[in-house]
Structure formats: C-alpha cells, structure tokens
Design a protein around this nucleic acid. Structure first.
Lengths: 340, 340
DNA sequence: ATGAAAGCGCTAACAC
DNA sequence: GTGTTAGCGCTTTCAT
C-alpha cells in the first residue's frame, strides 16, 4: 500500500542480495552468478522496480539524454514558426524514432536569441544533456561554433556556413541539382532558369553550382537566376522577375518545394500552363510537393534517414568521446510527378 | 584550471558561508541577511556556479521537466508524419516558448504503440517528468485515461473522446462553425454544404452541429454533408461527392484548411471559380490557409496561445497538486481572405 | 562472484 | 538568520 516507488534497496532485500549486485544485474554487467541473476530479475519484476534517472545521473555524471535544439533567427514572429516548418517536423520525427531504440527522449530547446543560446550552452556544459542535435535555420548561427568551442558533443543538420569542427549530415545538394537539370533536359526543355535560396547559404550555393555545372556539361551556359528566400512568397517574387526578363522560358528549377509552389502560382497567373508551357521542379519532397496542383516533380532529401543518422552519430560520439567529427552525405533522388 | 564544474560547496567556501545558505540564496528563499546574500551572489558569479539538475531532482524528488507526448495512431508511416503536421509544430512552438519562461524544456515522447504508451506511462510514474502535455491524433487514444488513472498530472490539447477527469484546452468549435456559417450567409451564399472531419471525433461533431445550428437560425435546414478525414485527399473526395449530388452549391465550409484546399482544387478542376462561383471557408488558419491560391478565408484557432495555456495549466497543477482538472475554451476568429 | 561503503550535488529538517 | 546533518537512489572502487 505504500506510495513509495521501489528502490534498489527494496529489490536487494527482496532478492536477499546487496544493492551492488542488483545494480550489476540491472545494468547488465557480467560476473554475476546466473542463479543470483535469476533471483534478482524475479525480485525486480515482483517489486515493479525501475531505476531512478536522477540518482543514476548523479552517480554517473551523465544525463542520459540529448538536446534537440532549434536555432532560429529570433525575429519573434518566426520563432514559433520554426516548429511549424514541416521540414523540422520530419527531422524531429526521425530523431525521436531513432533515439527511442536507446530508450532516450530528446529535450526540446529553442535558441533564437543570444540569451537563449547562452542558456542552451550553459545547460549543456553543466550536463543537463550529454550532447546536442542542432537544426539551424539561421544563416550565420553562432551556436555551432559555441558548442564546438565548449567541447559539447553535437551534430548538425546541414553543413555550417563557416567551417567548424563539428559533425553533420547533409544531402548531396550538388548532385541533387544536377539530377534536376538532367531531368529538365531529358524532358526536352532548353530555355531553363533557376530560383535559388538566399545567397551565402551553403545549401543555396551548392544547388546553384550543381545546376549550372550540369547544364554546362550539355553546352548550356549562362542560365537566368533569381534569388528567393526559401518561402513561397519569395518564390513568387523570383518567378515574376524571371518571367519579366525571359518570357520564353520553358523550365524552372526552384531550390526548394515552397518556392516551386510560388513559381507555379505565378506561372498560372500569367497564363502559362504547368507543365505544358513551363516545367517546374523543386527540391525536398516534403508535404507541399505531394499536395500541390499539379503534383510537384522534385528532388527528394531522405530527411528522416538523415535525422536518424544524426542521432546515431551523436550516440557514437558519446560512447567514444575520442571520435573525431564526422559528416555523412546522403544521396538525393528524383521524384517525377506531374509538374514536368 | 580544474575541469570540475563548481558545486554549492565551492560557492559556500568562496563566500565563507554554509552550503545551506548558498542554497537558500540560489533558490530565492527569504530569511537571508541582505549582506550575505550579496556575498553569495558574488561568489556564484565568481565561480560560475550553476546548479546540478540531477542532484536537485534527487533531493526534491521532482524532475523539473515536463513531457510533451505525441500520441499517434502507430501506423508506422504516419508515425513520424505526426511531427510534420504543421499543427503539431504550432503547438510545440507555443509550449516551448511558454515553458521557457520557467526555465524548463519539454521532453519529446512518442506514444504510437501500446508498448510505447506503457513506456511513457512508466517513465512518468517513475518521475522522469513531473507531468505531461498530450497531443493526441488518435481518436480512441487510451493514454489520457491511463494518465488520469495513474494520477499523472496532464493537460490535453482537445477534449478527449470519452470523458476523462483531465485538464484540456480547446477552441470553441461550435462557435467557430457558426462564424463560418454567418460569414457565408453574409456573402449572399445560400446553397451551402459542409465537409466534416471523421465522425466520432468531438471536434468534427462540434463543428458540424455548430454549422447546422447557425444555418437553422436563418431558416436553412438539411445542409448537404460529406465526411472527410482532415487530409487534403479526403477533402477532395468529399468535394467530389458533394458536387455530384449538388452541382448548384455556392458555398462550402470545410472543417479544416487542408480539406478546404482539397475542395478548392476539385472545384477548379470542375470549372467552378472560387470564390465567384463557390465560396470556400476552412478552419485552423495554419500555413496552408495563408499560402493557398486563392488565400483561404478561415476560422482561426489561436493554437500558440492554447499551447501556452496548456503549459500554464500544467505548471499550476504541479505547484498545487490539489487543483482539480480544468478546461479552458478559446474563442475562434474569422479571418476573411480571398476564397469567399 | 559478492558485499561494504563512500560518494555524486543538492535540499530540508532541525538546532542554535 | 545561519549552520549542521541526514538523506535522495544510484554506481563504483575496494575488500573479501
């Protein structure tokens, strides 16, 4: 009838052994007589024992948890919108699923201001979590460097803008863009243009150069470029600019799906049928691509797999702290749909 | 040069007082001489002290953290998609922001299978987290009842299907639907129809009866109804059915934005201009509503505020465990855009 | 192979 | 007001 949750002590008493022995069994340490092991296991079941995290953490000096930190721009309105980005959702899902196999749950942190970043860093150094999985939407995010500097084990989604000694996962953006170029060309499109992400972001640059180089291999040089910002509105504006300069274009590669959607909307407004008059291809293959009209041909990033790999990389690093930073690059795939 | 993080003991020594006094100052407990308080504060700053969570939890028997549990259907593919739902993202954002003021970060848990639910419950009972914020996408989710039964403090987003003694926040769905009805009528639409969410879900039912009753007040009875499932595809199918039966309709209320988008796509495919021929209004006001073409008129749920309230309710309950379950209902607002 | 005992860093009675 | 002291529940040498 006691409300107290059972402790090691209780199990030990029930099994007629010492706390140390129970601890060994619970933690799967060898050198315990099989007979005793059995007795202890029975006692654990009988008492309904389950180890206390806090006590364990205190003794081992490990939190046994990792932080999932979202480092946004901090423009207030955007702050909570970061989470609403389906892209983040896919990452979170992949991470949760992967971490769960190890029985650990991520702690959600938001690093959207300098103060918040300091708090996150302080917490991590103090050991609130053993390491961090970082999703940065901020171009010049100082957090990766801060974490690396503080020696906090961390893994990024996407290569940092400035080289930092830190692990990360990334899709091969260059190859993905080439896939898009080849696909448009294979569809017989020749007057191509592209809508890029914000300049200065590695992802944008890689997709642009990948696209350009693939076209160059086919003798196409000087492709029209308009800069977007990865939002639908940005895509619309860029498409307008492109159309004004090159009314005869017949194929567009947008550096992400949202901008592709914006481009399609503008094209339709200007009487261009997609894909009959103009073919459009995006990048990501998130929910927007699958529900847009027409369904969007796109370059798929295996986001969930990448997120799972982030978790794996971090856990590996935690298990063997000497492991040097590692990066894993994933292959993109072409998903042909109705927009090309 | 020591790598050890400073402890209370270190601060106490530096300030020339006892651990207890430092603890009091750190925890803002009165009855400490202002002079000494000052000395302690200085020592804290000098040593760079920051309290150890595990030790504190062990001593207070409180984890000082809350769980954010997502209880999905467990159909594997859907599992990680739960997170990709922008709706969940908005909730998560609101919760993180609200919790942060208290210096606490939510622990993300996924309860998508019976086993996972048991694990979550076990962890919560053991005190891994002091309480739970539950977002359930599962219609007949057993978790709310499990939590209530185990006496775990919890707050739900949305009223549970079966009445359970548990706190929750909810938008006034009935009133929201009435807003939609009144708006369509005010726009001069008279041949109305509605696309509902899955039958059996309180949200669906409330929105349907709210819509019906508002129309009835204006003398309109027997409005055509088609059941959807809150997805865009479901909305498309429902719209097709509606159009087949009632080709002359001039206004549609979809129980959420995604279905409204599906409806718009189908209407366009069938040569109906929106809003000229048919006005469409949705519910939620998430990202889809703001980026669809035409921009979607919708009923806004203040999701972020609701999420923040969830956190507040839980923290209140944790501070005063005797507090009975409370529910807070939020007012929806009409957001007129281009689709009506 | 097992047990005894010393902490891990903090809080909370209780004494003064 | 402040200090002393006894744990919180677990891991981990160190003996045996």
């Amino acid at each position: 009838m006691s409300e107290r949750t059972p402790t090691l002590e209780d199990v030990a008493r029930a099994a007629g052994v010492s706390r140390a022995t129970v601890s060994r069994v619970v933690n799967g340490i060898r050198n315990v007589d099989p007979q005793i092991q059995e007795r202890v296991r029975a006692a654990v079941a009988a008492t309904g024992y389950s180890p206390n995290r806090a006590a364990r953490s205190l003794a081992t000096r490990r939190a046994n948890s990792v932080a999932l930190v979202v480092s946004g721009p901090g423009e207030d309105a955007c702050t909570s919108r970061v989470f609403a980005d389906p892209f983040f959702g896919r990452i979170a899902g992949g991470i949760v699923l992967s971490l769960r196999r190890e029985g650990i749950h991520p702690v959600l942190m938001l690093a959207d201001t300098d103060e918040a970043r300091d708090d996150v860093l302080t917490g991590l150094r103090r050991g609130d979590a053993d390491g961090a999985l970082l999703v940065s939407t901020h171009v010049h995010d100082p957090l990766p460097a801060m974490l690396a500097g503080a020696g906090v084990p961390a893994v990024l989604f996407s290569r940092p803008v400035r080289p930092v000694e830190i692990s990360y996962v990334e899709v091969d953006n260059h190859a993905g863009a080439a896939l898009a170029a080849d696909h448009l060309l294979a569809r017989g499109r020749e007057r191509l243009a592209t809508i890029t992400g914000p300049a200065g972001v590695p992802v944008s640059q890689d997709r642009l150069t990948g696209f350009r180089e693939a076209l160059a291999r086919h003798g196409l040089h000087r492709v029209p470029v308009a800069e977007g910002d990865f939002t639908q509105d940005g895509g619309e504006a860029a498409m307008l600019a492109l159309l004004a300069e090159h009314p005869g274009l017949d194929g567009v590669f947008a550096a992400n799906d949202l901008m592709a959607q914006g481009a399609i909307a503008v094209l339709r407004d200007h009487g261009r049928a997609v894909p009959d008059d103009v073919a459009v291809i995006g990048f990501d293959d998130g929910a927007p691509a699958q529900s847009s009209r027409p369904r969007l041909t796109t370059i798929r990033q295996p986001v969930e797999d990448m997120a799972a790999e982030m978790a794996t990389l971090l856990l590996t690093r935690l298990a063997a702290p000497a492991t040097p930073p590692t990066s894993v690059i994933f292959a993109p795939t072409l998903i042909p749909r109705a927009s090309t």
